[in-house]
Amino acid sequence: MRAAYASSFDTDNPLAALTVGERPEPIHPEEDWVTVQVLASSLNHHDLWSLRGVGLTPDQLPMILGCDAVGTDPDGNEVVIYPVVPTPGDPRGVSILSEHFAGTLAERVAVPRVNLIPLPTGLSATDAACLPTAWLTAWRMLTTKGRIDDAESVLVQGAGGGVATAAVALAVGHGKRVYATSRDAGKRERIAALGATALEPGARLPERVDVVIETVGAATFDHSLKSAAPLARIVVSGATAGHEPKINLRRVFAMQLEILGTSMGTPDELTDLLAFCAEHEVRPVVDSVVPFSKVEDAFARLHSGDVFGKVVIDHTA
């Protein structure tokens, strides 16, 4: 079957480590695994890190890439794949597809049957393929950790990236006042078009917010603290610009702030996210849809740093 996979590692030029070619059919490590025919998938920066050798070892090569996908199960049902799978031997006890088990950037992929979630009516395969990693992370940050139902306002740092852009769209979909920062003027225009107030990094907000979504880290964390209202939740899922920020602990305890870490989400949370998007007509921000025959172009687009939203792969084109 045709697949896109890491055949080597290249720290400086990850695209050089990408190969598109034939790979064996999926293997079922357990009896409860099934093969899904992939209809659509989407790229994550995780795929580029894999090509750099982060999270993989040479003896795991070649490794089919990709975490997110929608496909058809053996019974002909259209399903969304939850990408976290039990992984004996991994210190976490689990991994996401393309770390220990072959990923979704292929004609077919093997997953546990319990990881298959029905595709809701009204959501296209290309839209739903954006949701299982970045959008699920944003959903958990806002709902389970950030308790957005108890909030009136949200600040999203570094909007333009996958998780942050998803957080903007979902917070707007919840009817909250949303502020979002970006260094890029063009991305600020696009953020504003989603319904948020777009600001330069570090800009003073017109109010202190109840929830802060942090994926940037050291570069924005002081601003996040200063922008937080009493009892606010600052939810962290990444640190793209430094993982050791200087924190004013007096502000933390005086304002009774919560600093919460999180990663990914649960199958139930993905089910809730899918239902929310279908019911409220919230659709993922899609940068581009690329046919699988041009998957190298999709990786180049992601690597360029110019993306806004998700890069989607159409496996049927």
Rank of each mutant, 00 (worst) to 15 (best):
22 E>P: 12
187 K>W: 03
56 L>W: 09
16 A>I: 14
125 A>V: 10
224 S>Q: 10
218 A>S: 13
282 V>R: 00
293 S>G: 15
146 G>T: 08
165 T>K: 00
143 T>R: 10
22 E>N: 14
143 T>L: 11
67 C>V: 15
292 F>P: 00
102 A>S: 14
221 F>A: 01
40 A>L: 08
81 I>T: 08
81 I>L: 15
184 D>T: 08
181 T>P: 07
252 V>H: 15
269 E>D: 09
156 V>E: 03
39 L>A: 11
219 A>E: 02
245 P>G: 03
255 M>P: 13
172 V>H: 04
249 L>A: 13
124 S>Q: 13
301 R>N: 07
35 T>K: 03
301 R>L: 13
176 K>L: 13
30 E>P: 02
63 M>H: 03
94 V>L: 07
78 E>Y: 05
160 G>T: 07
216 V>H: 01
195 G>S: 10
295 V>Y: 04
29 P>D: 12
292 F>G: 02
255 M>Q: 15
26 P>I: 04
269 E>N: 09
269 E>M: 12
229 A>D: 13
62 P>F: 00
197 T>C: 05
53 G>K: 06
271 T>W: 00
109 V>Q: 00
93 G>I: 14
70 V>S: 01
25 E>L: 15
88 P>C: 06
66 G>S: 10
59 D>Y: 04
268 D>S: 15
261 G>K: 14
190 R>P: 03
135 W>Y: 15
15 L>T: 12
307 V>K: 05
181 T>E: 09
290 V>L: 06
234 I>E: 05
98 S>D: 12
50 S>F: 13
59 D>P: 10
85 V>D: 07
288 S>F: 06
181 T>Q: 12
303 H>W: 12
242 G>D: 10
234 I>M: 08
10 D>R: 11
60 Q>E: 15
141 M>N: 01
